[in-house]
Amino acid sequence: MSETVSFGYKDVDASEKTELVGEVFSSVAAKYDIMNDAMSGGMHRLWKDRFVRRVKPQPGEAILDMAGGTGDIAFRMAERGASVTVSDINQDMLDVGIERAMDRGIDGLVWSRQNAEELTFSSRIFDAYTIAFGIRNVTHIDKALKEAHRVLKHGGRFYCLEFSTTTWPGFKEAYDLYSHKLMPKIGGMIAQDEESYRYLAESIRRFPPMPKFEQMIRDAGFSRTRVEPILGGAVAIHSGWKI
């Protein structure tokens, strides 16, 4: 029997998910950053600032920002002097990021189309690996985590910013209502794509809870793992070290 994986609330053949996710992000690429502001009330900017502060990028460090398409995380780390390679499986997202970098006069970033599960980079070449709001869209998360571990130097650090499930009573119910009912409607109004944002909302619910995902990071070989919940876990910063 063929392997099935989640695509929102549907289960699809594993061989189909990459293409289906690609269609989602190609559809929303042009409006992705506007939608992030609309859906989070601008809070995604604060979450990303906090995330980069935890990463502590240093001048001269080599950092791989995976699923970094539009450049939000990479721009912040480049400002701190890091040498950042921005990778994404979706060329449309990378094209948006390249255009944004040109508009801002940001030079020195490397842009590389990559599948997180099968990176073409050599082993042990990056000081840090970051991925923000991208790992839940990977077909085989365990493979992506092992690849992250492989390309990091000994002493390298892994940081992941991802949606999760809030544990705050009351807020959880309100957040579920918002993400399932309002988020697709906002996507329809702003990006003319209700279905893609319905998938993105559903993908959050299918993502492993914080303790399970932390265990997956440990299973990939990382040590000193840590989870930092935001809004009771609606968003979380996961980290680990290659020791």
Results as ranks from 00 to 15, higher is better:
Arg157Asn: 00
His180Cys: 00
Glu228Val: 08
Ser223Thr: 15
Tyr199Val: 02
Val151Tyr: 04
Lys31Met: 13
Met1Val: 11
Ser123Gly: 11
Lys56Val: 08
Phe126Cys: 03
Ala132Pro: 09
Tyr197Ile: 07
Asn36Phe: 11
Ile141Cys: 14
Gly69Cys: 02
Asp37Met: 01
Asn36Thr: 13
Pro211Gly: 12
Pro208Asn: 12
Asp219Arg: 04
Pro229Asp: 12
Gln215Met: 06
Gln91Lys: 13
Ile135Arg: 00
Asp72Pro: 07
Val86Asn: 07
Gln114His: 09
Arg150His: 07
Leu182Ala: 10
Ser239Gly: 13
Val151Ser: 01
Asp49Gly: 10
Leu177Asp: 02
Lys181Trp: 01
Ser6Glu: 00
Ala128Gln: 09
Gly156Glu: 05
Val110Ile: 14
Asp95Lys: 09
Ala62Met: 06
Glu117Phe: 04
Thr70Gly: 15
Phe51Trp: 08
Arg205Pro: 00
Ala74Val: 10
Ile131Met: 11
Met183Tyr: 06
Ile230Ala: 08
Pro57Ile: 05
Met43His: 11
Val12Phe: 06
Asp72Ala: 12
Arg76Gln: 15
Met43Phe: 15
Gly81Asp: 12
Glu19Gln: 15
Glu228Leu: 09
Ile63Tyr: 14
Gly60Lys: 05
Gly232Thr: 14
Arg54Val: 08
Ser239Trp: 02
Met77Glu: 10
Cys160Thr: 06
Ile131His: 05
Glu214Leu: 06
Glu99Val: 08
Ser223Gln: 15
Thr70Val: 15
Val28Gln: 11
Met210Tyr: 15
Ala191Pro: 05
Met183Ala: 07
Leu177Asn: 02
Trp47Glu: 10
Pro169Ile: 14
Arg124Trp: 05
Val5Pro: 14
His154Asn: 11
Ile63Met: 09
Glu23Cys: 05
Ser15Glu: 13
Thr167Trp: 04
Asp11Thr: 03
Pro57Met: 07
Glu23His: 07
Val28Glu: 06
Asp72Cys: 12
Ile131Gly: 04
Phe121His: 07
Gly221Val: 09
Trp168Val: 14
Glu162Ser: 08
